[in-house]
Write a protein that binds this DNA or RNA. Structure first.
Lengths: 330, 330
DNA sequence: TTGTAAGCGTTATCAG
DNA sequence: CTGATAACGCTTACAA
């Protein structure tokens, strides 16, 4: 079978018009007489013509493709964000090129460059954190970019977040009312901007409660890390703990359960993501609710504006968060 | 800032060679004198030249991009598959275009066509099921395609799976030893090939145990559906249940727990996905272990061969499954 | 309203 | 080993 691809030229010839006209009806740009439009459309259907997005991208210098960058494909937090991005991108007919840095932690910059060479029209960048280098690269390149769930100190790049510092502060204040030994479990990576905000929130609360002991405990990512960090929690006699990651919290929950330590009576546990895992946990996990889906959706919507060079008033969007009290806190 | 893009032509001019030569050193194709190679490479670095993948795609008729099709971005099952695909695709330097059909359930075909027009070199198709129409479209188009976690009756498309029928049969046999009322919870969609295999597995087991009652119960997707289906289970006095989806199983687990029904003493629960959720559940969820990551990885590896037109001996790969007995079964 | 033709940035086929 | 030059399939001024 000689599946020679059907080009715009084939359609033009058959319809006895020029390529330009076919292009016009396909894209709905410019004036075309209704009769010709109909004829061309019919022929397009008959021949089963589908425009070649690659050629189009080259000619128009637009790919209607956005790159989405995330560290991990198999992670409830990023998945919910991605879902929001995906749904909105569909609305605007953008395609998505996925770039995960999972294997290549060291070379995020290379991953980004590969995104550039794919000529994406825009980028949504998600991560646990963002390095200044990456920020600079993104910024210099001049491709519209929105950060989702990360902020950069320099505040140069548009971003969508919640107020991590305030959220942490609120929880810590609440914990401090009833306990005198409180922990914040953070992920252990060299530079983590959100983590810094969280620590600041805690520090601020600490100022108000000189008799209370506040601990920052570093853990890895994921469920296993939660399991692992539990002993440290007990050794330090922690009575209430706030984690970033839901999986980590569930690890703590389960470790407690396995050792017959009552949650929330003996240990209060709260997380800061509120992915759908929180509901599946037993006891149900209390959580700072980050509106992840919305954050993704808002980020993508902002990106579309940026790509169309529409003015965007507020480029540092802070979405409201909530404290969801379920069964893992009193 | 006039960020005019640097082309191969710019490099050629500066290096005082032809575009062809630059192209050769960039792609490592053909012979180039070591001296010129070095010079060109230096200039490439100096100018910060990066090849334009779109132009390259048009010229070479290859995009080194594969499309991955999945119904839902925020789903542990597909995410683990996708992770396997992603990691292997990195190894082979393929980029990934993601197409989820989440919003547009009705028009999977349109989604696929949009993948075609992106000129992807290959496709990995994942889904709860696959319709004959989609199969045909994929087949006719002639783009190398591998199904992951789905099989099509016609057996025309390469695929990677486990033996769903056998797995179900094994569980059912085991359940039938101790119980006289057993359920298989399946997802309710009009055509679901894997479901059919599962039902067949059950039917086969049923033949061996005339005194045992086997029920097929239809539920929706996700955690909530598990919660919801619990009452039906109790109404029918089910003593052991096998679900497809982990989330559904966890819903059942939690519903049982919330009503003080002991698992596994009063109800045995097993799922058929073994995503990482299984470990987080309490009691830990017993499960048929589908090697999801491996399935994704194998599918992607097979796809690379198909794309290179290398012969692939077995195009219907069945990976081994295991029964993982945790705390939700006796 | 429609057609012509010049790109878009590469690759690839020939000659040299 | 290297250089012209014709594709690749489409968009987009510019003409008509």
């Amino acid at each position: 079978m000689k599946k020679r691809t059907i080009t715009i030229y084939d359609v033009a010839k058959k319809a006895d018009v020029s390529m330009a006209t076919v292009s016009r009806v396909v894209n709905g740009t410019g004036k075309v007489k209704e009769a010709t439009r109909q004829k061309v459309q019919q022929i397009i259907k008959d021949m089963g013509y589908h425009p070649n997005a690659v050629a189009r991208g080259l000619a128009s210098q637009k790919t209607t493709t956005i790159g989405i960058f995330l560290p991990d494909l198999n992670n409830a937090y990023f998945n919910e964000l991605a879902q929001g991005i995906d749904d909105v991108s569909k609305l605007y007919n953008y395609n998505i090129i996925l770039m995960s840095s999972s294997i290549s932690h060291q070379n995020e910059k290379d991953v980004l460059r590969s995104l550039f060479s794919q000529q994406v029209d825009g980028i949504v960048y998600m991560s646990y954190d963002i390095s200044d280098e990456v920020c600079d690269l993104l910024y210099e390149k001049g491709i519209p970019t929105v950060l989702a769930g990360v902020v950069d100190y320099k505040r140069q790049l548009p971003s969508v977040n919640i107020d991590y510092k305030q959220a942490t502060y609120d929880i810590m204040e609440k914990f401090a009312e009833y306990h005198d030994s409180i922990a914040l479990v953070v992920q252990d990576k060299s530079t983590n901007v959100n983590r810094d905000f969280r620590c600041k929130g805690m520090a601020e609360a600490a100022k108000n409660h000189s008799t209370v002991q506040f601990e920052v405990i570093r853990a890895g990512y994921g469920y296993e890390s939660g399991l692992a960090v539990f002993d440290e929690l007990k050794a330090k006699d922690i009575q209430a703990v706030l984690t970033t990651d839901d999986s980590v919290a569930i690890g703590i929950l389960n470790a407690a359960n396995d050792r017959s330590i009552k949650v929330p009576e003996e240990l209060e546990v709260m997380s800061a993501m509120n992915t759908k895992l929180a509901l599946m946990a037993r006891p149900e996990l209390s959580s700072i609710s980050q509106p992840l889906y919305d954050m993704g959706a808002v980020a993508m919507r902002m990106l579309t504006k940026l790509m169309k060079k529409e003015p965007v008033q507020n480029q540092q969007v802070i979405l409201p968060h909530e404290i969801i009290n379920r069964k893992s806190t009193k």
